[in-house]
Design a protein around this nucleic acid. Sequence first.
RNA 1: GCGGAUGUGGCGGAACUGGCAGACGCGCUGGCCUUAGGAGCCAGUGGUUUUACCGUGGGGGUUCGAAUCCCUUCAUCCGCACCA
Length: 818
Amino acid sequence: MRPYKFDKIESKWQKKWKDEGLFKVVTADHRNKYYCLMMFPYPSAALHVGHGRNYIIGDVVARYSIMKGLNVLTPMGWDAFGLPAENAAIKNNIHPSKSTMSNIAMMKRQLDSWGVSYDWDREVSSCTPEYYKWTQWIFLKFYEKGLAYRKKAFVNWCPSCNTVLANEQVAAGACERCDSRVEQKDLEQWFFRITEYAQRLLDDIDKLDEWPEKVRTMQRNWIGRREGVNIDFPIVDSDKKLTCFTTRVDTIYGCTYMVLAAEHPMIEELAGGNPEKGAIMDFVKEVRNGSRIERTRTERDKKGIFTGRYVVNQVNGRKIPLWIGDYVLTEYGTGAVMAVPAHDQRDFEFAKKYDLPIEVVIDNPERPLDANKLDAAYEGEGVLLSSDQFSGVPSNAAKEKIADYMETEGIGKRSIHFKLRDWLISRQRYWGAPIPMVYCDKCGIVPVSEDDLPVLLPEGAKFKPTGESPLKSAADFVKTECPACNGPARREIDTMDTFVDSSWYYLRYISPGLTDRPFDTKDVNNWLPVDQYIGGVEHAILHLLYSRFVTKVLYDMGYVGFDEPFKRLFTQGMISKDGAKMSKSKGNVVSPDALIEKYGADTVRLYTLFIGPPEKDAEWSDKGVEGAYRFLKRVWNILDILAVSAKTGNVDLEKDLLRKMHQTIKKVTEDINEEFHFNTAISAVMELVNHIYSGIDRCGAGSYGKGILNEVLKNITLLLAPFVPHIAEEIWEKLSGAESIFKHEWPGYREDMLFTDTVIVPVEINGKLRSKIEIPRGLEGDKVKEVALADEKVQGAVGEKKVRKWVIIPDKLVNIVI
RNA sequence: GCGGAUGUGGCGGAACUGGCAGACGCGCUGGCCUUAGGAGCCAGUGGUUUUACCGUGGGGGUUCGAAUCCCUUCAUCCGCACCA
C-alpha cells in the first residue's frame, strides 16, 4: 500500500507548474486563443471556501481548455483601491498601501495553495502608479470627448463613509457598503456621461446571448427605457411653462393637478408673490433634507403643499392647481408630473389626502368606475371616457393618437426617458486614483497633460475622513501649476470611484508592462473579447455595466476594435453555511487553509465542485468534504490494484468496464461543455470507479487485466485532471512517466463502444410498471409485442383482457393499454 | 407592487427533446477485516397496512404515460421599487 500523501504531491506539482510556466502565454501568438477571466478580487481579508468556488471553477475551465488544445490566457490581479483598506488604515493607523500589499500576499498564497494557477507575469494591481496612470488617462480621454464633466447636483452622500456614491452603489436608500442611510447633498461632482450610451447599452444586451438571462434582465431594468410624451403646461399669469413626462398620455384628460419635486429649480420663482412663500420654502427644505430612504418608502404618507399657482392642461384648456409633493423624484423625467388620480395609485392617494378632484377617463371593462366611490386607482387598460374626440378609443391606440395630436398642435413631443443616471465618479476619499484635473483662477478647469501622468497619490496625506477629500491635507499635492498658463493653480482633490479602475483591467492584462500606452490595440483586438468571464452575480449591474460602457467609448475612439468586452459570462452561486451567507460577524466562515492541511487542496476542490450546480447557491457541509477525500483515496488505491493485477482478466467484465469508460468520457465531456455541470461530471467518474471496485469484488483479483486497468485508470486521471490536478499529475506520472498531464489531450470516446447488444426495457400496463424484458437493441413492433406477451408478469396482468393500444418506444419502454 | 429564480428522501442534489423518480455523495443500518476503528471493503437505505398501493410544495387539466407541458394556488430566495 502506498498511502495518498497529498501534501507532498501538491507542493511538488504546484512548484512544477510554476517552474515550467504551464500557464504562460505569449501575447503575440494568439492562434486558438481562449481568454478565461475571473473577476479580480478586492484584497481584503483571508479568502473563505465561498470565494474559493469562483477561482476553482475558473481553474477547471482553464485547465480543461488547455487539454482541449486551446491557447489559454488566465491572468489574475487586484482591485486594490477602495474603502475597506482606508477604513482599516484609519482604525489601525497603518497606511492603506501596506495593508493592501500584505493582503495581496496572503491571498496569493491561498490561491497557490488551492492549486489555482495563473500567468502571474501579467499580474496587475489597480493601486500602483503603473496602473492608475492609465485609469487617469481614461479619465482624460473621457474628458476630451465631453464624457467626463463636472456639475452641481443632488447626489447620494453616505455620512458614515464620508463620501458621495453612485446611484448604483445605493441599495434601498442605504449605502451598499456600510448600510448607512444615504442623504441627498447638493454638491459639485465629476460624472461620466453614461446616459449618452444608454440606448446602445440597452440594444447590445441582445448580443450577449451567452450571458445569464438574469443578468441581462437586470441590466435592462436598470437602464429602464420608457417611451412617452413630454407635455407642456403653460403657467397661468406667466409666459413660462412647465414640462412633464408621462408614459400614460392616454389619461391626459383625467389630469386634475400637477406636482413638482421639491428640488425643482422653478419653485422659488413660482412661489414669488405668494404670501405663503415662507411655508412653501420651509416645506421644500424639509423634504430636501429628508433622507432618501425616508422619501422612497412607498407605504409612507405622501406630503405636499399648494404653490398658489395654476397651469393649463392644453388638451381641454382647463386650469389646474400646481402642487409640490415629496413623492416626485427630481432625477427622473422632468421633476414634474401630471397627476391623474383616477388612474395612478400615487396620485390617487395624494388627491384623497388633499381633497383634489378625481376624474375617471378610462373605463374598466369589467365594471364601470365611479370617481366618488373609488378606493384605488384603476391602472389597467380600457376605453377612453370624457376625453373629447378621443372618447371611445381603446387606451393603447389612444396613446398614439393623442401623441400625434399633441405633436401637430405643439402641445407635447414624443420622448424617451431612461432610469439610468450619469455615473458619479468622484469620491472624497484617499485610497483611489487622483482625478487628473487642475483648477486655475485664470483658465478655469484644466486637464493635466498626458505627459505628466500619473498624478501620484501623495503618500503623506492625512487620510482621516472629514467630509472633504483627505488629499486637501497634502499641501504639496494641491499646489501646482496650471498646465495651460503655468500660473499658480490647485489640483482636484477628489479621487475616482474604484469601479473606474475595474472597468478596464481586462485590457491591461494583455500588455501589462507597457509604459507608453494603457494597452496595445493590435494585441487587445487579437485577444478580446474575453471568451469566458466568471464571477459573482453581485456585479450584474455595477461592474458589468460600467465595463461595457468604457469598452464602447474606447471602441468609438478607435482604441479597441470590439464594443462588448465579455462574450460569455458565468455567475456562480454563493456558498452558505448554517443557512446564512458566510461572514465574520456571523462566525460561520469556513477557512480553506485548515481543510487543505487536513485533506489536501484536491479534496477541497473536488468537494467545492461536487456540492451542486455551480450557478446555484449551495450549503457547505464539512462531512461532504470527507466523502470527496474518500473518493480520491479510492482512485489512488487503484494504483495498488494495478500493481498486483494479472496480465489478462475476465473478458466479459473487461468489455463491460470499457463500455462504462466510454460512457463516462462522453458524459463528463458533455457536462463540462454544456453547462459547467461539474457535479454530475464528477458523479459519473465516481460511478466508473465504483464499477471497478465492484467488478473486483465479484470476480476477485483476476477480474481485470493489467492492460485494461491501466487504460481505464489513465482515462479516469485525464477526466479528473481539471478538477483535481495534483493527484492527476501524480498518477499520470506513475502510469506513463510522461510530461505533464496538461500536455496530453482530453480523451475522446468511441460511439461504437457506448452500447450493449441488448437492452432491458420496462413494460408498463396502463402506465404502471409491471415487468422488464431483455430484448436486442433496436427491436421494434410486433417482435417486441411477442417478447412482452411472453413475460410471466405481463401475462398475469393482462390475462383475458383485450389490449386496446400498444405504445412502443424502441429501446426505451413498452406500455400496454388494456 | 414589478421582474426573475427555486420547491424532489433525514440532508446536498440526479433525471436528455414527456418514457424505469431518487444517479452520485453525506448520514444511517448491517456484514467482512481488525487488538481497536472516527481506517478500508461489501451490502441495504423514499413511505406504508408490502402479491399491492402511495409518492417530486398544494389543487385541477392535457396524455397510453407528467418532477418535466398547460391552468391555478402556496412558500422561500434574489433583483428593482413613489421611475409618472
